[in-house]
């Protein structure tokens, strides 16, 4: 007899069941029962945000080089899970070719953003020639905790394309998986859990996006939202909830299954720019400056 896998949540590096004790049936397009996934609740969202906040500062404090190494490690572990991911996608209606292609894109994204982890800073920062005797420079800094609503069309390439640049930039993430195709998301959690990504940096919740999103969007300790295509009503209500603490809302409409749907901008969209001033002492009678 086949042993069926229970798909749990991924929060704080652990795989807890939803505190609500609820689950929902994941079905193939032709109505076949594939697995049970957790139907995460508002409290799960809250717990995930809490651990994401706790994890964020130490994740950001890791050296850029180290973050790159960890992202590359994700690619390595991913590679070993290829077959499982393809199978999960096929069970939800993808052809083997489509599934293989999507997994390949996901792995390639890891490599791509691993390389960015210690480079976007140089390309998005500046030394500013101010007209006084001050050293003035601007650098990117992570926004903090970012809520992601994963692309509801793709099973893997979307959420990976959304998540990687955000964590490469030192943010932590609470990710609401594709409601209908949540399996790869949780498998991704397993990949992350075994690839040196500190617990809490990425937190993955499965369930009904419409139920979870208002809590995530309204949470006062979430700094930004990364929203993929969503039904208008859901999108509007998320953006409205985001206003209370002035969350940055970035709406992503790119086709994540395209190999080209990657770039430094997806990192810097989730960065603040900090400008620092410091006096330059004037020596030998000249004004200091750059």
């Amino acid at each position: 007899m086949e042993i069926l896998k229970t798909y749990k949540l991924y929060i704080g590096g652990q795989f807890p069941r939803t505190e609500s004790g609820r689950s929902y049936l994941v079905e193939s397009p032709d109505g076949k029962a594939i697995a049970n996934a957790c139907l995460a609740s508002k409290k799960d969202v809250r717990n995930a945000v809490q651990v994401a906040r706790k994890a964020q500062s130490s994740w950001a404090a890791k050296t850029a080089f180290n973050k790159g190494q960890i992202l590359y490690r994700i690619a390595e572990v991913f590679e070993g899970r290829k077959a499982q991911l393809i199978e999960e996608m096929c069970s939800l209606g993808a052809s083997i070719q489509e599934a293989s292609q999507e997994v390949q894109i996901a792995i390639d994204r890891c490599v791509y953003y691993a390389g960015w982890a210690d480079k976007y800073q140089a390309l998005s920062s500046s030394v500013n020639p101010v007209a006084s005797s001050h050293f003035n420079f601007s650098v990117p800094e992570p926004m903090g905790v970012v809520g992601i609503v994963a692309c509801q069309e793709t099973a893997l390439s979307g959420l990976v394309s959304q998540m990687l640049p955000i964590i490469a930039g030192g943010n932590s993430v609470v990710l609401l998986a594709n409601s209908k195709k949540p399996l790869c998301a949780i498998t991704l959690g397993e990949v992350l859990a075994t690839s040196d990504v500190p617990g809490g940096v990425v937190n993955i919740l499965t369930g009904n996006v419409a139920e979870m999103l208002p809590t995530l969007a309204g949470h006062m300790d979430v700094n930004a939202l990364c929203l993929a295509k969503l039904p208008t009503e859901l999108m509007v209500s998320a953006q409205e909830s985001a206003i209370d603490n002035l969350k940055r809302c970035i709406i992503q409409t790119q086709d994540f299954s395209e190999a080209s749907a990657q770039g430094m901008q997806y990192i810097t969209d989730f960065q603040e720019i900090k400008t620092t001033w410091h006096p330059i002492e004037q020596l030998a009678g000249g004004m200091g400056g750059y």
Partner: peptide
């Protein structure tokens, strides 16, 4: 206390 030249100026 130290003295900052630019602030003094």
């Amino acid at each position: 206390a130290p003295v900052d030249q630019i602030g003094s100026l």
